[in-house]
Write a protein that binds this DNA or RNA. Structure first.
Lengths: 157, 157
DNA sequence: ATAACTGCAAAAGGTTTGCAGTGAT
DNA sequence: ATCACTGCAAACCTTTTGCAGTTAT
């Protein structure tokens, strides 16, 4: 199903309305190529000639997430970022602590082991997060290998 | 090295001071058995007959984290939780969306695959986060299998 | 003596909400 | 005609910070 139709479907099921704002947000979110924050999105909308209040962004994004069209990534300190997920499959992220770059990765094997751990612990998984922090190729080089000591955010969840 | 000594060492290296507040915080944090938030910690301290301002907690916890005695887990929206890590080794977490229970797990194999992914992407890892969300044994039962639809927080990082 | 530390209260910064008017169904 | 939606501004909540006085080194 086409993304717009899928969102319309989601909305009608919940007796919610397809407003101009939601249409525009959806359109621009889908057009976005990478990961973006709420600020970025508002800026993208502005450049596209649309005005949508932050409140509406904050109210609409959860619907896009719940309808499965967008994924939410929580970075440190509650700075959420989002990424369109239409026509993509699951992946996780590496975040460069130097330049902020987000690198995607996927591993069938890790997913499989994860399922196994859940079975073993009788845990019914509905979702997961796997974020690796460190330095990307370019930044690790500039700082020298393993610079900076232990990750101050080690083990963050 | 004993935990208190290790923290003292960390502090002196950084020319920071071992104050009464830091001593008490360290002591109670180490005594804590599970995961706790800043509120919890202040309450624990109060019950132990100590008064420490929230500001001092917020100023001291990062030092405990950096010295490796405590790990920080970021849950959604900047609600940080902490856990003492003395005499323990690395593990990750499952969080029950129903009762909030945190279940620990560890998988050498997952860690190994993770390292491999990093090598492949030329990423120099300093730390990682692997959180699984869903329902624990008890809660999954009460709700019936796979209740509640897709994880609204799917893919959160 | 010097710097770091503490508590307090104010500020920050992202996100949420009450309200009154607007608009999709 | 409903009832959800919107923008605005105020409220929220956790975390951070400036300040003036205190304390470890």
């Amino acid at each position: 199903m086409h993304a717009a139709a899928r969102f319309a479907d989601y909305l009608s099921r919940k007796r919610l309305k397809m407003t101009r704002e939601r249409r525009v947000i959806l359109e621009q979110v889908l057009a976005a190529r990478g990961h973006f924050g709420v600020d970025d999105l508002q800026e993208i909308l502005r450049k596209a000639g649309h005005t949508v209040s932050r409140a509406s962004l904050y109210r609409t994004l959860p619907h896009l997430v719940e309808s499965g069209l967008v994924h939410k990534l929580e970075m440190a300190k509650g700075q959420a970022r989002y990424e369109p997920m239409v026509g993509r499959h699951h992946h996780d992220h590496m975040v460069c602590l130097e330049c902020g770059k987000i690198i995607e990765f996927e591993s069938r094997e890790i997913e499989r082991l994860q399922d196994r751990v859940c079975r073993r612990k009788r845990f019914s998984m509905t979702g997961h997060t796997h974020q690796i922090r460190g330095y990307c190729d370019g930044c690790a080089g500039r700082r020298g290998p393993r610079a900076g000591g232990p990750d101050p955010q080690a083990h963050r969840v």
